[in-house]
Amino acid sequence: MTPTRTGYQGIVATVPVTIPYVRYSIHSAHWWLGKALGAMVRDAGVAKHDIDGLCVSSFTLAPDTAVGLTQHLGMSPRWLDHIPMGGASGVIALRRAARAVQAGDAGIVACVAGDTNHVDSFRHTVSQFSRFAQDAVYPYGAGGPNASFALLTKNYMRQTGATREDFGKLCVAQRDNALRFAHALMKKPLSLRQYLDARQITDPIHLFDCVMPCAGADAFLVMREEKAQALKLPFVRILSTIERHNAWAEDPMQFRGGWTMDRDAFYEHAGVGPGDIDFMQAYDDYPVINMMQIEDLGFCEKGAAPQFVRDHTFTIDGSFPFNTNGGQLSVGQAGAAGGYLGMVEAMRQLTDSAGATQVAKADIGLVSGFGMINYDRGICTAAALLARSAA
């Protein structure tokens, strides 16, 4: 019997921060994470010592963990979490932080993710990504996400009839959104013809299917609603969250994610359904995972995402606004910060601070995370439903 879940009443997320991404950086991950913390302190109007909880996600922080970072930043939190879960990290940080504040273990929690990107750091990260990568993939020449997602994409196309044009439509729409987002690294329009004609990377993956590694950081604060009100900070409410790890291990190859295990409880806990969602921010290192999330989170039947893509525009001012800042495919992937990119954008949407990417009448948003790819599957999935403040 599944126990009854406690809601998140009175706990809010606020002060979304993005430290503008750059393609390469000589700075350390510590520098990027510190810049994000400094920006939150300034934007929130609090002192650094007022932040007594800290969630950290980073691939290039090693050999430090969140513990070492506290010394580097001159902090002494009474609650600390290190979340090495890649694209699921943003939602999972929100979950952990909200429960810590709710339990009284911390008053203000800073959730911070960031990575640097030296000229050769991505190759090093890929080669050391996991024990599985070190022992079973990288030595055989299949290291890195391109080969894994080519495998997943080909399998998905075979099972659903999805075409490169379908994937391209998502990529083109996201680029259109990114052209309105100041921090996007991709500054040029993308046509479907350019997408289709781009050079092949690993069949059926081509250039614009692949996320571009970069350096940057994203962050937000979690606190009680009355604290946010006292600080005069705009905030968003947390309606529901889920996470699941190593789901459907019996599947020969990943065709569904852990969202399917908890989806009904996810919406029931929030008191809303897929039809109530005004926009979706999905983890998007490759377009195939976008389609998987659209299906697994209930916006269409399993295997029907190709038709769903054909039926919608995905642009900010069109039907089913999706990755409204352009997502990682057009903004860039700043390591673990990629798992926060959709979260901070959703918070901006729901506080009317998204600027040129603002979706009209956005009241409820869904943020979905996916992380830690191991050859033929990602083993971390998470999602959050966020809502505009009632005030």
Rank of each mutant, 00 (worst) to 15 (best):
T260F: 05
D285Y: 02
G161A: 05
L192T: 05
R310I: 11
A282C: 07
M291I: 05
S25K: 08
V344D: 05
H124V: 11
V367L: 08
R78N: 05
L385M: 08
D135S: 13
K169H: 14
P77T: 11
A336C: 13
V119C: 03
R263M: 13
A305G: 11
E165A: 11
A198E: 08
T357G: 06
H27E: 15
T18L: 15
R377C: 11
I108H: 00
A136T: 08
P20H: 13
A390Y: 03
D43W: 09
K232F: 05
L152R: 02
D285L: 12
T381A: 09
L185I: 03
L33Q: 12
D52V: 01
A100R: 00
N146L: 04
A390K: 10
V211R: 01
K361Q: 15
T163H: 11
C300N: 09
Q200D: 14
Y8T: 10
R123N: 11
T202Q: 11
A93H: 09
A387C: 09
Y286A: 09
L231N: 01
R78C: 10
R193F: 03
T4C: 09
P20S: 13
S148V: 13
A133P: 07
G161T: 07
R175K: 12
A247F: 15
D43N: 15
F167N: 05
F129I: 02
P234H: 15
T160K: 11
G257E: 04
T60W: 01
P84Y: 10
D363H: 10
G327K: 03
M343G: 01
S368M: 08
L73Y: 07
M347K: 08
R96K: 13
A13D: 00
I289A: 03
E295Y: 10
D296M: 09
V236L: 12
H49I: 08
V15Q: 05
G10F: 07
A178S: 08
D52N: 00
M292D: 04
P321G: 07
A173W: 01
A113Q: 08
M291H: 05
F279N: 01
V109F: 01
M40C: 09
L233T: 06
P287Q: 04
K169M: 12
L185E: 11
M85F: 05
F320D: 01
V46S: 01
D166I: 00
C210S: 14
L385S: 04
E268F: 02
A387T: 04
R95P: 00
G335L: 01
F181I: 04
K361V: 08
P145A: 03
C55F: 01
Y375L: 11
K35T: 09
P274Y: 04
A228P: 00
R175V: 07
H27S: 14
T160N: 12
T60Y: 02
S330A: 15
F235L: 00
G303W: 03
H206L: 08
A215V: 04
P139V: 04
H49L: 12
R263L: 14
M280I: 14
A382K: 03
F314Y: 09
Y195E: 06
F314C: 06
G339V: 12
T241C: 15
N290H: 04
M85E: 02
V137P: 05
N325T: 14
V41L: 09
C171K: 10
D115N: 15
I364Q: 02
D296C: 13
G257S: 15
F314D: 02
H269Q: 15
L185A: 11
F132A: 03
S148R: 04
S130Q: 13
G303I: 02
Q281A: 14
A66Q: 02
T4F: 13
G87E: 07
P189I: 06
A62F: 12
